[in-house]
Design a binder for these strands. Structure first.
Lengths: 240, 240
DNA sequence: CACGCGTGTTGAATCGCTTCATGCGCCGCG
DNA sequence: CGCGGCGCATGAAGCGATTCAACACGCGTG
């Protein structure tokens, strides 16, 4: 599918591109790739020749300690760039896994120079996206370091809700986030048992409902209030 | 001081610039700024017209919850960019404070476009630096989420040691990191009391020695071993 | 069809970390 | 000069999170 007809681009959440930029991005695109839930899309230590934009579905990136302890760093939703670190610095220092069936847009890393050279606006956009990621990580750090288990859980779900809503995933009925409780545990830095008990409390308060490998969000405002979180100031963002 | 004579630039840690790039950076520089320990260099919520490169000294950036709980996100050392987020996205979402007397190189944010337009290599460098920051935050998240108090403390000190060594701060004798134990507590997400007891254990094992507002690093390898941390793969990096 | 496996659930014991409290030395300042 | 504040130190009590141990359910598979 050509970029000009990309359904994401039509969404109000993404900023419009100059025709020349759009044309370049379209030529920059080397193909599409589909993957099932659970597929490892990028691996720590790899020198991938590609970077990707997530077209549909959910993914997450994570790191692990030598002894196996795993930490989920962030989640990716449609429009997000995957593997930029690998392209810019040379080697991935985290892995990426699909949380749902995904479709990816494939770019060749060796044409990144060309992008910066001929389309400075797009170069700036990539920096913008990197800064946005940094901002999310800042929020996550604040959460892990200074929030209680309950606040962390509330923050995480409100955060994922907001990001999903921004790309129209909260469609007809309430949003279902495709994660298991062990994903939540590995994101919040908690044990699975305690994560379970904490989510139970949120469910008892009718803020969420838990399904098999899915979290249904019932009351975002309630969650944001518990977490003392205002949400990301989501203005228009670029889409490469 | 003109960039051409910048003592940082002479260090092997930073990559050499093209003459044209260097000339631009020199013109990009709007002045220098000095500040004392404890000065707030940038504030959350501000729309600063500037961004900075740290020329000498130490600083840290942090976020706080409405009720006052504070989380230190990362530390800045000579060569690091401050306030890029504000320049790219428009508003700072964290604050920056000086840990020691600092000297800053001041840049005007409104000339950032020009940088991307006329010097794509520098634009790429800024993205590179943003990716490097992201990578450090990934490591911190792993630490906060999945390491014990002892491992976290060991990681933090080894991390700061490595970064300081990269810019030649481990000079003649052993390195002294200018932080207090409450900085450590706010970085590791621990209480001050428990931070104190943990640092005590590291000191008992002769890995560090604690002074007033300073940590002397005695055995980096021992610290890295405790943290199961391999260090950042520090190749040459750009300096804007 | 029985079995293993992933996912969610729950109780009980234990431990790591927090909170409360107190004390010391040092420094700047009214 | 005495006082308050900051940084470091330490003991004791309490709680929040982990670990251990089971169990239920659905699903794919040998």
């Amino acid at each position: 599918m050509p970029c000009e007809e990309c359904p994401l681009r039509a969404m109000p959440h993404f900023r419009a591109f100059e025709p020349a930029e759009l044309k370049f991005v379209s030529s920059f695109k080397a193909g599409e790739l589909q993957a099932e839930t659970g597929t490892t899309l990028l691996s720590e230590g790899a020198h991938s020749a590609h970077m990707y934009t997530l077209l549909s579905g959910w993914a997450f990136r994570y790191k692990a300690l030598p002894d196996g302890r795993r930490q989920i760093l962030n989640y990716m939703l449609p429009g997000d760039l995957l593997g930029l670190q690998g392209s810019v610095i040379g080697e991935m220092d985290h892995s990426v896994e699909a949380l749902s069936p995904v479709v990816l847009c494939v770019f060749q890393r060796d044409r990144l120079d060309e992008l910066f050279r001929n389309h400075p606006g797009l170069g700036f956009d990539i920096t913008w996206l990197a800064s946005r990621e940094e901002r999310m990580l800042d929020d996550h750090l604040l959460s892990l370091g200074r929030r209680t288990a309950m606040e962390r859980a509330a923050y995480l779900i409100a955060f994922l809700h907001q990001r999903a809503a921004a790309v129209g995933l909260d469609g007809s009925r309430t949003l279902h986030i495709p994660i298991s409780q062990s994903h939540v545990a590995d994101t919040l830095g908690l044990s699975i048992v305690h994560t379970n008990k904490t989510l139970r409390k949120l469910a008892d308060r009718k803020l969420i409902r838990w399904h098999d490998r899915a979290c249904e969000v019932l009351d975002v405002d309630g969650l944001m209030q518990i977490a003392e979180w205002d949400g990301l100031p989501e203005r228009k963002r670029p889409l490469i």
